[in-house]
Design a protein around this nucleic acid. Structure first.
Length: 976
RNA sequence: GGGCCAUUAGCUCAGUUGGCUAGAGCGCACCCCUGAUAAGGGUGAGGUCCCGUGUUCGAGUCACGGAUGGCCCA
């Protein structure tokens, strides 16, 4: 006895041993792992070895380089892409990922201008562009570092950037091709214009501030009623009536070309001292108060009409379509158009429409010009020069040369003279001002280059239906947009971009653009980038053309000037299918590529610009499928904003939890809708990460003495529980694979979680610990469990790769060589090179699974029963208990009979199990508990035999072992 | 203001063609263990399925209306 107690039995156990740390230490460990990937050239090696395999190309949409930081939304996007390419790569595809960046555009230009002392005109355009380029490239470095730290793999050595000389050259070529095909035309479109700075302004460059404007009501007499759908009597009523408009910009009246009416509103024709007037019913009272004298108001109230006026007739807005009015002071017709944009907020419900001076006016006129006015379109009239002075086009001689704002009182005079002015007052409202000079800006139509959508709209719509849109609703979204969109305005009055490669003869503004010139510019741009457009004059740019062409174009005789507008950045990124994919055909294959994956806002943006340009060039969509994700909101579903203080910064998440936790979050949410993130969410993901990590750690720790080549146990010799666990593994592998194929990563997350928490930690590991630790190292049933653990590892490790590549690598690097999966006979340098596990049909056993469902419900009953003695302090851990089972169904007793007593003890994790056929006499135990249900009754009580000090199980043999009086027979064998 | 979408336990998600006493994992509470140990096990409490109104024998599931939030437009 004395002798025995000297023995430290703990040292005779097979306790877990592993160098794999419980804590990730992600902040440093992940960086080490990324360094390993870089040094081992993992991505490059894979690409080289796979270049014969079937391609799966996910083409990256380029983020803006206006900052070196990345947002959580960008992180979501890049991680999703990475999960996709990693998974597909494991499935054996050749999956190149070329990261892209959008380096042109206003945000960059403005950010640079902000830092120029003395404003943008203090430096040359060439210099400004140089700084923009430097700024963009510096930001690229920053973003790249951030993307790589997310664990995103790809062709970082050679990303694509829209400011690359070659990219820009291709863009010139593409523009030339579209011009040649007749898709490009020059038109007029209103833009914000600052007459003081004499420049166009982007939306982002106007600031709103108070401004005192006129508020005037003007009569437009009816000229022609023939084309209205009205009955004759109503036509007659209208012939000598007038429509009343309200405007705050009298100076735009010379540019009036139409009136707009809302087809849904009701309009009243009323008598007044100005004759018969037409005004929206709902606005009549307000209109009356403004334009009538108190006496008149009183009089009308006496008349007792429903409104302040005496209504003669009422019309639905739509009945007035086709009505033609006369301009109050210019000999011109002003037709009535139907417009949904007409509101009842203010005015008369009839809107003065000057398409050259307002965006909504422009759009409604464009709409009519495409349809009803196709044969006789309205012009986009904008009779002001660059400095805001009236031109001849205004058709009012006294306004010629007058600045627009001084034109206001003059127009009022003219209206008065024509007796067309019903009312004039001043009022203050919010009005756009120039961000630089802070003076009010105007809308002014300028010449711009457009793409004529009509020519290929039907083809585009057809192309949309060749694409798989995920989620499906995306199809309708983009279809409706393309179906209803207007022409694409390509021109931007900026500096930082690719120029519209057009020359004009200075004498008559005739356009010069030919395939030869485009080819020449292509070569120039390829060498010098688009910078050369600003560095050289038109003559210099064309100096290299062959002599015969120079003669043909009249160079040297007629002076040429360059177009100075640049292209819309959506055109830049829209043609990446050509400037990137087609240009790297060897690497990226033929168009269309497999997948575009962006936020759902890109239905209007990149998906569309890519589609339209691709249809124009190739008459097909550039992608086979389009997958979209929603936006990232805070934990309560609000948009993130600095002012709310609810912004989640990906870098701080990585610092606190590591990139894999962030990636796990990405995988856990249903990204097809908007997703939420916050402290709580991240903390929870960290818990999941830890659980997975510890599950693997348990496996590694218990495989320290296992060599699969020597110790593996054949399937037939595995216990029922072992085989069930393999079945579960297989089942979950199937679900996971299916989830990845559908891009439903949240299902993957749930499956992995369930496997680790329920199947393994709470069940298999918990009950096999006794075997692993206490059996002799080489005991068959211990080797069997290790065989299962090894099978688990071989499947779990590779499936961790797409979402948590750092974790997978960390595991891989701590594996002994003998346990590493071999690919072509060699263990790969990185876990990320492991193939996706193949399903193993041998492990699938539906019958066994069904049987186990029942056994597990018995286990559940046992657990419930054990709570009885435990709550009374009679037992602690389950091993201190024994149970008597009384099956209430034949199936249950049959099943229990299939397990040996020792297997029963293992499954229920107790010291003894007996299966009774009749209720036992439990009187000696006043602490028994019986749990009904589960088709079994369970009687739980403390084990009666002495406890083995080695394995902590109570057993009748304790005390009978020679030389080891404190241990049981199994332990005795293990020790001896 | 228009188009599209979402809303099931504190969190992340399941809920097939209407049959649910609405599930899972986490988190939480309580208990146990101390040989996976800044780990592990067990039990349990949590839900007017956003709100109305319909259709139906029966609605988380279908229809209509509304609220809130999001994206895109105006």
């Amino acid at each position: 006895m004395q002798e025995a107690s000297v023995i430290n039995y703990k040292e005779t156990l097979n306790l877990p041993q592993t160098a794999f740390k419980m804590k990730a230490g992600a902040a440093t460990r992940e960086v080490e792992i990324e360094t390993h990937w870089d040094e081992a050239k993992v991505y490059e090696t894979l690409m080289t070895s796979r270049n014969k395999a079937q391609k799966f190309v996910l083409h990256d949409g380029p983020p803006y380089l206006s900052s070196d930081k990345i947002h959580i939304g960008t992180a979501l996007n890049k991680i999703l892409k990475d999960v996709v390419t990693r998974y597909k790569s494991q499935q054996g595809f050749y999956t190149p990922y070329v990261p892209g960046y959008d380096g042109h555009g206003l945000p960059i230009e403005n950010a640079v201008v902000k830092n120029i002392k003395g404003g943008r005109h203090a430096i040359s355009e060439v210099e400004l562009r140089k700084r923009c380029r430097e700024f963009a490239l510096a930001n690229l470095k920053g973003q790249e570092t951030n993307f790589k730290r997310l664990g995103v793999w790809g062709h970082w050595e050679k990303p694509y950037i829209t400011i690359d000389a070659e990219f820009e050259a291709t863009q010139i070529k593409v523009f030339g091709k579209l011009y040649e095909k007749g898709f490009v035309y020059k038109g007029l479109k209103p833009v914000y214009w600052c007459p003081t700075c004499e420049t166009a302004l982007a939306d982002a460059e106007v600031e709103y501030g108070d401004h005192a404007s006129h508020s005037i009501y003007v009569k437009f007499p009816v000229k022609n009623v023939d084309k209205t759908p009205l009955e004759a009597q109503f036509k007659t009523l209208l012939t000598d009536a007038s429509l009343v408009i309200w405007t705050t910009t009298p100076w735009t009246l010379p540019a009036n070309l139409a009136l707009a009416i809302n087809p849904e509103f009701t309009y009243h024709l009323v008598k007044s001292r100005w004759g018969k007037l037409l005004v929206a019913e709902k606005l009549l009272p307000a209109f009356a108060k403004v334009v009538m004298t108190p006496e008149e108001l009183a009089e009308y109230e006496l008349i007792g009409s429903t409104d302040d006026f005496e209504a003669i007739a009422e019309f639905e807005g739509r009945e007035l379509e086709g009505l033609i009015t006369r301009h109050p002071f210019i000999d011109r017709e002003s037709p009535v158009l139907m417009g949904e944009h007409v509101t009842l907020d203010a005015g008369t419900g009839i809107v003065h429409t000057a398409p050259g001076h307002g965006m909504e006016d422009y759009l409604v006129v464009q709409q009519y010009n495409r349809e009803q006015f196709k044969d006789n379109p309205l012009p986009i009239l904008s009779p002001l020069d660059n400095s805001g002075k009236f031109t001849e086009e205004a058709l009012v001689p006294e306004l010629l040369g007058v600045p627009y704002h001084l034109g206001n009182p003059m127009v009022l005079e003219i209206l008065r003279a024509q007796q067309a002015l019903l009312h004039d007052s001043k009022f203050t409202h919010s009005y756009p001002h120039c961000w630089r000079c802070h003076k009010p800006v105007i809308y002014r139509a300028t010449e711009q280059w457009f793409i004529d959508i009509e020519q290929f709209r039907p083809d585009s719509l057809k192309a949309i239906d060749t694409v798989q849109w995920l989620p499906e609703r995306g199809r309708n979204r983009i279809f409706n947009m393309v179906e209803g969109r207007g022409d694409w305005c390509l021109s931007r009055q900026r500096v930082w971009g690719v120029p519209i490669p057009i020359f004009y003869y200075e004498d008559n503004r005739e356009v010069l653009i030919t395939p030869e010139i485009i080819a020449h510019l292509y070569e120039l741009f390829k060498v010098h980038s688009s910078d050369i457009w600003w560095a050289q004059s038109a003559e210099e740019l064309l100096a290299g053309l062959p002599e015969n062409l120079k003669v043909q174009y009249g160079l040297g005789q007629r002076k040429l000037i360059k177009e100075m507008d640049i292209m819309d950045v959506w055109f830049d990124s829209g043609i990446t299918h050509t400037a990137v994919v087609d240009a790297r055909k060897d690497e990226l294959g033929e168009l269309p590529v497999e997948l575009y994956l962006e936020g759902s806002d890109q239905h209007r943006g990149w998906f569309q610009s890519s589609l339209l340009t691709s249809v124009m060039l190739y008459n097909k969509a550039p992608y086979k499928s389009v997958l979209t994700h929603g936006f990232v909101l805070d934990e309560s579903g609000r948009k993130m904003s600095k002012s709310l203080g609810n912004v989640v910064d990906p870098n701080s998440v990585i610092k606190e939890y590591g990139a894999d936790v962030l990636r796990l979050w990405v995988a856990s949410v249903d990204y097809t809708n908007d997703v939420r993130i916050g402290k709580n969410t991240l903390h929870q993901m960290a818990e999941v990460y830890k659980k997975v990590r510890n599950t693997v750690r348990f496996i590694l720790g218990n495989l320290y003495d296992f060599d699969p080549a020597q110790h593996s146990v054949p399937y037939a010799e595995l216990s029922m529980l072992d085989r069930y666990t393999l079945h579960r593994l297989q089942h979950i592998l199937g679900n996971i694979t299916d989830a990845f194929e559908q891009w439903e990563f949240n299902r993957y997350c749930h499956e992995i979680q369930y496997l680790c928490m329920a199947d393994l930690s709470a069940l298999y590991f918990d009950v096999t610990k006794d075997i692993l630790y206490c059996d002799a190292a080489n005991a068959p049933r211990r080797r069997a469990v290790q065989t299962v653990l090894y099978a688990l590892l071989q499947t779990i490790l590779p499936v961790l790769v797409p979402v948590t590549p750092h974790l997978a690598e960390d595991i891989w690097l701590s594996l002994p060589e003998a346990q590493k999966t071999k690919v072509d006979g060699v263990a790969p340098v990185s876990a990320t090179l492991l193939p996706w596990p193949q399903p193993n049909a041998q492990y699938v056993n539906a019958e066994l699974a069904q049987q186990f469902e029942t056994l597990l419900s018995v286990k559940e009953a046992v657990n419930q029963a054990l709570e009885g003695p435990r709550s009374e302090g009679k037992i602690g851990k389950s091993l201190e208990a024994q149970v008597i089972l009384l099956p209430e169904a034949v199936a249950v007793s049959d099943l229990l009979g299939q397990l040996t007593p020792s297997e029963q003890e293992v499954l229920f994790n107790v010291s003894a199990v007996s299966v009774a056929t009749a209720p036992p006499d439990v009187t000696p135990f006043d602490w028994h508990t019986r749990v009904a249900g589960n088709e079994v009754a369970v009687y739980a009580m403390p084990a009666i035999h002495a406890k083995c000090v080695r394995c902590w199980k109570s057993d009748a043999a304790v005390g009978k072992m020679p030389g080891h009086p404190e241990i049981c027979e199994r332990c005795h064998q293990a020790v001896e």
